[in-house]
């Protein structure tokens, strides 16, 4: 394998940082669109870890899983945006703290 060699540890660290950013965004943001974007960041962080692992052990599996995650993310965004439209239509807001009816 030739080309730019990036150490595994650095790639995993980047993936970890990205994942944590996404997680924090999911927990802290109240706007549903930002929550969806945070989800995308988390998915891509996981995908990056897969690709890195695949490159390290020269296995195609890592890239296959990356393609799978890409597909899942696309499908999830399609459904998610549809839900966002409905939420906006019904609650007239995208703030998820206000758009709730269930009270335990």
């Amino acid at each position: 394998m030739n080309g730019l060699q990036i150490p595994m540890e650095q790639v995993l660290a980047l993936a970890g940082i990205l994942f944590s950013c996404g997680l924090l965004g999911l927990m802290l943001r109240r706007n549903i669109i930002f929550m969806l974007m945070s989800l995308e960041v988390m998915l891509n962080a996981a995908a990056l870890a897969f690709v890195a692992a695949g490159a390290k052990w020269s296995q195609a599996d890592g890239q296959i899983i990356f393609l799978l995650i890409l597909t899942v993310a696309a499908a999830e965004v399609a459904v998610g945006l549809g839900l966002v439209l409905q939420i906006q239509r019904r609650f007239k807001t995208l703030d998820m703290d206000q758009a709730r009816r269930l009270r335990g």
């Binding site: 802290l28 109240r30 549903i32 703290d97 709730r100 269930l102 335990g104």
Partner: peptide
Amino acid sequence: LAALQTGELRWYATTMV
């Protein structure tokens, strides 16, 4: 147990984490 079901999405995400 029903008290746990608050309907707050962020609360759910945090508890899962």
